[in-house]
Design a protein around this nucleic acid. Sequence first.
DNA 1: GTCATGTGGTTCAAATTCGAATTACTCGGT
DNA 2: ACCGAGTAATTCGAATTTGAACCACATGAC
Lengths: 152, 152
Amino acid sequence: MSEPRWLDELEMAAWQGFLEASNRVARRLEQQLKDEAGLSHPQYEILVHLAAAPGGEIRMTELADRLITSKSGLTYQVGQLERRGLVRRRACPTDVRGVFAVLTGEGREVLRRAAPGHVAAVREALIDVLDRDQLAVLAEGLGEVGRRLRRT
Amino acid sequence: MSEPRWLDELEMAAWQGFLEASNRVARRLEQQLKDEAGLSHPQYEILVHLAAAPGGEIRMTELADRLITSKSGLTYQVGQLERRGLVRRRACPTDVRGVFAVLTGEGREVLRRAAPGHVAAVREALIDVLDRDQLAVLAEGLGEVGRRLRRT
DNA sequence: GTCATGTGGTTCAAATTCGAATTACTCGGT
DNA sequence: ACCGAGTAATTCGAATTTGAACCACATGAC
């Protein structure tokens, strides 16, 4: 095994910036959602993805893939949301094993009320700190990073 | 309250890219460290920060701030590392309440062995996917994002 | 049809995380 | 010297996360 290629100064700064920003942004948004909407970030993300899906429903496994969480974690969170009436489960007609998570009217309403504050927090923490060129790099560069990791 | 400023297409792409990349990179590195070095990412980070500090030791609260974790979370992880002999605690001479986390020789050795594989994984997942200009944006832009959230 | 293999989702136990409460101490003002 | 406010770290309980084990079913080869 050869000597590893260590990170040079720029690479190190990029990595540390990415790491710190990831952690702090996540922490901040988690806090904001809990305070203002009574939702955890995973729960909010579930509602968002369901609201964006045709029919307001997505299969459990598909949803777990998009949320980048384990299947058991999703089962738990959907259970929490179901207890609060924001989501319900529906059996899949074509596959008896399958389950759809379905957004309820109340879930849609909770999301509608939570969204403005959340978007404002995302702007304040991340988006409005960057200029258009920097946003374009995040979209392209990190988009590619995400796509690659999806495939492997 | 006025209509919130929603995210336009570019902003949305940047936000989603950031979110997905954060999650997938974190997940990948967690996996890599667990498999190849038997460490969680928080644990690895603790060792890294200690190794970089003069004397290989840092006060608990200072360390918690840098790691962006709660103090109780740090107490737990340092306890885990102490059980494995990679870190020990030392009372602070000038403040009886204070505690230093100190890297042991064995801790340094474990880190030395873990680092090459980890750096390679960081390169593969993130750094080598981006060109120099993109890295510069991460370093500057996300660096600023992190600094702002630190202050508030 | 039947069997082997794979998939979808849940359950379970163990590990981790967080915040609030707690303990013990420091520090500045009086 | 003493008091009150603030700080350092830990402990505690509750909530969450994970992977492995599991069950029920789907799918394709034969």
